[in-house]
Amino acid sequence: QPIEQNPSGSCSVDVSAVWWDIAGFKEQCIITACEYVVSLWKPLGAWQWEKTYSWHFTEVPVLQIVPVPDACSLVCVALGNLEISEIRALLCSSDGKSEKQVLLSSGNIKAALGLSKRRLVSSSGTLCDQQIDLMALAEDGGSKEKQSLMPPEETVLTFAEVQGMQEALLGSTIMNNIVIWNLKTGQLLKKMHIGDSFHAAVCHRAYSEMGLLFVVLSHPCAQETEPLGSPVFQLIVINPKTALSMGVLLYCLPQGQAGRQVFVSSLLNIRFLEGDVKDHFAAAVLTSGTIAVWDLLLGHCAALLPPISDQNWSFVKWSGTDSHLLAGQKDGNIFIYRY
């Protein structure tokens, strides 16, 4: 169901799902982001939604929503032009009557990820003064504790939690390495090279099983080197003890879609990659305007959503609160699919 027509003419940039306390009830809400406004929509039932809160930004536009898993009535946003220059926490006053925003960090921020236990990790600065910060978020949205993680000697582009291991964090770097930190001690545990075919890969999800680390990666740009066409996502396995790795599965487009999968992205701005992974499903927006969904266990493309009403899809997210797929168009229309 379309939940918003955007009369301002500014582009819709992101969507996310969040739990929010509204009049004493914890509701599963939708957060939408346009360039200068972030809105919270509460469910009214029967697929009707009502805009409940809006946070306005006047100087710097919104680049992406940074959801904080486990957090209720709190969401973060990254603001900036080409690069992230600010991360802000968005919340409400204690009486629920007005919106609040708190500046969490500013600077030349490369990547940010919300983690379990109300934490946020970000990488900022350039190569020689790169800083990796882990923040615990207080009830009022501010930073309660700040801890530095040991930076690798190369730029960190993306982060991913290791499922089931709250103290482990992965990062992908510009030099095709996966790094792993111990969040409790801040130690950089290992740097693992994953081969040159993974240039500027985005690290989406990871889990550890039988002493091995399984990592789902995606490629910010298509590469026509594979005989089956360019893989959009890839599952690799790494032995963290030896740093040896190998590919397990490639997730390619079905026949007939090949050659049209170059993402809305560039090597310099890989966070604009429009792909998302949750549990064993991955979704991505293709430049054709179609959304493709893969079953990561079965290894095949499970669904294709063609553009609707002549409007291409421009972003896609899994709802972290259930198994819904949130698909957005530039004009502000958000569609929710039950998968």
Partner: peptide, 23 residues
């Protein structure tokens, strides 16, 4: 065979790497 290609595996890799890495 695949596991052998990746070298010796440890179920406690996280704890072991944490004790080996510089503080």
């Amino acid at each position: 065979r695949r596991k052998r290609n990746l070298g010796p595996i440890s179920l406690n890799w996280f704890e072991e790497l944490s004790s080996e890495a510089p503080p």
